[in-house]
Amino acid sequence: MGNPADNIIRFRDSTVRDFTFWRIFDIFAIVVGLVAITACGSARETDVILATTTSTNDSGLLDVLIPDFESISEFNIKPIAVGTGKALAMAERGEADVLLVHAPTAEKVLVESGVIKRRSLVMHNFFQVVGPENDPAHVAIAVSATNALKAISETDTLFISRGDDSGTHKMELALWQAAGITPKGSRYQESGQGMGATLRIASEKSAYTLTDYGTYLALKENLDLTPLLGEDRSLLNIYSVLELDGDRFNNVNSAGGKDFAEYLLSPRAQRLIETFGVDKYGEPLFILDAGTSESELVR
């Protein structure tokens, strides 16, 4: 081994006998070069980035709507499911073309600042307070959502918060505020995760949590959680489509965003939304709102 001459002999010998590393390497280099030159599949002019909440994606609604839209439109939708807080932040930077989100108060801030040109109601359902079946805080008989939260804060039961600035988290914080309570302490825990993971944590810990109805319906088979409070006006969960103002940003595809927004409000899409979930859960997940004004709904 120590003798360099051995090395040379071994080297020459092995070059003949073995696969040649460099031959393979050179072939790889050519292949990668060709791939890089030919397969330039970067973003196309027709791509529309839809920043949306996890619930529309996880429930499978977008898997129905997007292929239908693409079959009649020249645009391709790229759904990025990030949660309402991040979706709105993307809009502020012009990193998305159209939004489907559910946090009316935060949405209106962007409408007022001019980032959003048009905001239209698409659909709604209700948030639900879910919790353990024995319901130690008697949420099921609470007269309102704020009363329910007050009752929960007065018992020893855990409450799991999303803690991720999503639409559901924003709703939860607004309810605590309305109840005049600052949630804190060891019985208030933040999961920092999506709705599915948060429901699972709540289920494992026999805790209460606030959830959108669609995700709860989709997961309830695997959960030890009971729906305790919903259909309360204060738990209204309104989804809107937001179009960005193309004049404010250089690269925003406002035509594509407008096209998708108009599609969501069209009878064709509204029919799909209306029946979505009926075959799987026996009831629709969303109630139609196209053309409805928010004041009508809240009243």
């Binding site: 996890t54 996880d58 499978g60 999506g194 599915g196 993971a197 699972r200 989709a218 997961l219 088979e221 695997n222």
Partner: peptide
């Protein structure tokens, strides 16, 4: 990640 988030274990 998506499927486990959806509860489709």
């Amino acid at each position: 990640v998506l499927e486990s988030g959806k509860g489709e274990f």
